[in-house]
Nucleic acid binder design. Structure first.
Length: 397
DNA sequence: TCTGGGGTCCTAGGACCC
DNA sequence: TCTGGGGTCCTAGGACCC
């Protein structure tokens, strides 16, 4: 049996935990009201009563709930709290699979002697998480991860839902089609266009028919999903990992100086996390979303690992220049892909005195930025560029 | 309701190698 | 002189998730 454990209104709950004055109040995490392009990242259950939910434009949320308490998200804090919770799960089973910042599967195989039957293990997980982290979770219990995942959403918050062995398909048939995990907007539309509006209607179709209009992979996925069988979605280990930072700007970016500063800021964020979490990478990705919402990306795998924020910035800038079409930019993103464990040790050529000092300086700057996110700390080179357009490229930092 | 930020996986085509 | 089959790695875009 498997548990799927889901933290309730995670970002908002962390804020309420850290600031007791917020408890019992409508807390809305994400953009600040008045922002033209912001949305809600998370809403406390108190805020949901007003109809506020995640992904909703922040101005609409404000109209629904002007008395709400609006906070910017603090991802570093949520990641930290997430690690605490995951560590708690590890007390229950050697086989814990985290699938997002606020959810994980726990394989209960072999845990009976320690924690009793699965229902009791589920209750113990709920108690233990609350005890050690102060957060509530919703738990789904089923014979496979796919069904456990859907079950945890059935009684929120602080809930528990059990799909007994043998009842998987019957359980799936109680769901509206859009609640089937993995069926998104596009697949839903395609199914509708073939006259399929419910799980039961989908169940009536043999696999070859599904394959005919969905292709093999989607058909096999859907065929399993509708029957409450382990869908092919879960690998034991993720195939690749990545770290990225992106930002949507209140006003379109158009001039090169502003774009450069924005890129540098993103590169520093990514590099800081790379160092903190002990990853190395040779692949850099830059994402551009223009003001008409068309989105493009460009990536390149180099021969050497990314050595510093400066190195990352240079690679990202080159990729940006290759792709940029001159239009107004609403979003910029920078990512490091295909991560490998272990920090990149200083390259031999970096051991000469100047480079080593540079590296140390950069580390200190990144740590300062992490501690004081609002500190306007940036490169003199870029500042100089602002006053003297296209000034010499060889300025020191 | 003009649409965040951070992820993973899949697909299809091209480069390159044997 | 016009060409097979198999494999891997890389890239861009897209679907989907929280």
């Amino acid at each position: 049996m498997f548990l799927h454990v889901d933290l309730d209104a995670f970002f908002a709950s962390v804020e309420q935990l850290d600031n007791p004055e917020l408890r019992g109040k409508p807390v809305i995490v994400g953009a600040m009201p008045g922002s033209k392009r912001g949305v809600v990242a998370a809403a406390s259950y108190e805020a949901r009563q007003f109809g506020v939910h995640s992904a909703m434009p922040i101005d609409r949320a404000y109209r629904l709930c002007p008395q709400g308490i609006y906070l910017r998200s603090n991802m570093a804090r949520y990641r930290e709290k997430s690690r605490e919770v995951m560590a708690t799960f590890a007390e229950f089973s050697p086989d814990v699979q985290q699938i997002s910042i606020d959810e994980a599967f726990i394989d209960l195989a072999g845990t009976h002697r320690l924690f009793g039957p699965p229902e009791e293990a589920a209750m113990a997980v709920k108690r233990r998480v609350l005890e050690t982290t102060g957060l509530t979770v919703s738990v789904g219990l089923a014979s496979n991860r796919y069904v456990a995942k859907i079950a945890s959403g059935m009684s929120k918050p602080d809930g528990f839902f059990h799909v007994p062995l043998g009842q998987e398909q019957a359980f799936m048939e109680t769901l509206p089609l859009h609640k089937v995990w993995g069926v998104g907007e596009k697949l839903l539309e395609r199914l509708k266009s073939h006259g399929i509006h419910t799980v039961s209607e989908g169940l009536a179709l043999p696999l070859p028919t599904l394959e005919h209009f969905l292709g093999q992979a989607s058909a096999q996925f859907l065929y399993n999903a509708l029957r409450g069988m382990e869908a092919t979605t879960f690998r034991d280990a993720p195939q690749s990992r990545s770290i990225s930072a992106e930002n949507t700007y209140e006003d379109d970016l158009v001039d090169r100086y502003t774009i450069g500063t924005a890129l540098l800021d993103l590169c520093q964020n990514v590099m800081l996390r790379l160092m903190k979490e002990d990853w190395k990478s040779r692949t850099v990705c830059v994402k551009i979303r223009y003001n008409d919402f068309t989105t493009t990306s460009i990536q390149e795998t180099g021969p050497r690992y990314i050595a510093s924020a400066d190195d990352l910035f240079q690679r990202a800038s080159a990729l940006f220049d290759k792709r940029y079409n001159g239009g107004g930019i609403r979003l910029l993103g920078v990512g490091a892909l295909n991560l490998e464990p272990g920090q990149e040790p200083l390259q031999a050529e970096l051991f000469d005195f100047g480079q080593e000092r540079h590296h140390k300086l950069e580390e200190v700057v990144l740590q300062l930025k992490a501690k004081h996110p609002n500190l306007p700390l940036t490169k003199a080179r870029l500042l100089r560029k602002s006053s003297k357009a296209n000034a010499s490229e060889k300025g020191e930092d």
